[in-house]
């Protein structure tokens, strides 16, 4: 007991000190290190040359160019994105992270840079399934761990009797839906559509039911995650985002990936 106690207190006390310390020194941003997952096509993925690509990687590059700062990209597992940000492994997260109150307690966000609802996907044989909490009672539903979809399932569908399975990556959940381990997946609309239409095993499955976007669970759009102390970085990125929105650069990147606006 006492070790964890001492450790927790030590970390807490030191964290307060460090927060004071970092607040004092405002630094000038010349290079921004950006963390992303690289497993969430078409928003972020790793290409065959092991480079990060995708909608939000292009967007981040455009913002950096606009603000005349250089950008470095770091791939990091989804579950580790926030801890690694807090540990200083990079300065901003561009990884389709929804702006939620829970996360706001720990990190700051830029303004939203796109909006995307969630939806249910099931096997074609189950196309008649209505994705209401009552109808899904007794079913096994999957989602990526730590996402807004995961939280929605845990808070609305699990109490109604569904079994919720959480996966480290979205792709592992997709694999289990295709093999019949899952009855359904709740996931980001554009990511799920991308899988259904473009992958080899996506043909197994189809969308059922409506879009889900209740802000109480699904947040206020997707933004870049930042450390709370870096107010100057938030100002810089918000400013850059406004500029690429105004210049039409955002629309150009949007059109490269989607035939409609996702802002």
């Amino acid at each position: 007991m006492s070790i964890a106690n001492v450790l927790a207190r030590l970390v807490f006390a030191a964290a307060a000190l460090a927060a004071l310390a970092s607040g004092a020194a405002a630094k000038e941003w010349k290079t921004i290190r950006i963390g992303s997952e690289g497993a969430y096509p078409p928003f972020n993925l790793i290409d065959s040359n092991r480079q990060l690509q995708g909608f939000e990687i292009d967007l981040a590059k455009a913002i950096c160019a606009e603000e005349k700062v250089s950008c470095e990209f770091v791939a990091q597992d989804w579950e580790g994105l926030i801890p690694a940000l807090l540990a200083g492994k990079y300065d901003a997260i561009f990884a389709s992270m929804s702006i939620t109150d829970e996360r706001r307690k720990v990190i700051a966000f830029t303004d939203k840079y796109y909006t995307s609802p969630s939806l249910f996907v099931t096997a074609r044989e189950n196309a008649s399934l209505q994705p209401t909490p009552e109808a899904m009672s007794g079913k096994t539903i999957g989602a990526q761990t730590g996402t807004v979809s995961a939280r929605y399932l845990q808070e609305v569908y699990a109490p109604a009797g569904a079994e919720v399975k959480l996966y480290v990556t979205q792709d592992e959940a997709n694999l289990d839906l295709a093999s019949g381990r899952l009855d359904a997946i709740l996931g980001d609309k554009f990511v799920m559509l991308n899988w259904l239409e473009k992958s080899a095993d996506g043909g197994c499955c189809q969308v059922v039911g409506p879009d889900f976007s209740d802000p109480k669970y699904f947040g206020d759009g997707i933004g870049a995650g930042l450390r709370k102390g870096d107010a100057d970085l938030k100002a810089l990125l918000d400013n850059g985002l406004k500029a690429v929105r105004a210049s039409g650069e955002y629309d150009r990147i949007n059109a490269k990936y989607f035939p409609f606006s996702i802002y």
Partner: peptide, 14 residues
């Protein structure tokens, strides 16, 4: 891991 992704508080690992 579920508690951590919900709370983002490192204490749960301890």
């Amino acid at each position: 891991k579920r508690a951590f992704s919900g709370s983002l508080d490192f204490e749960v690992y301890l």
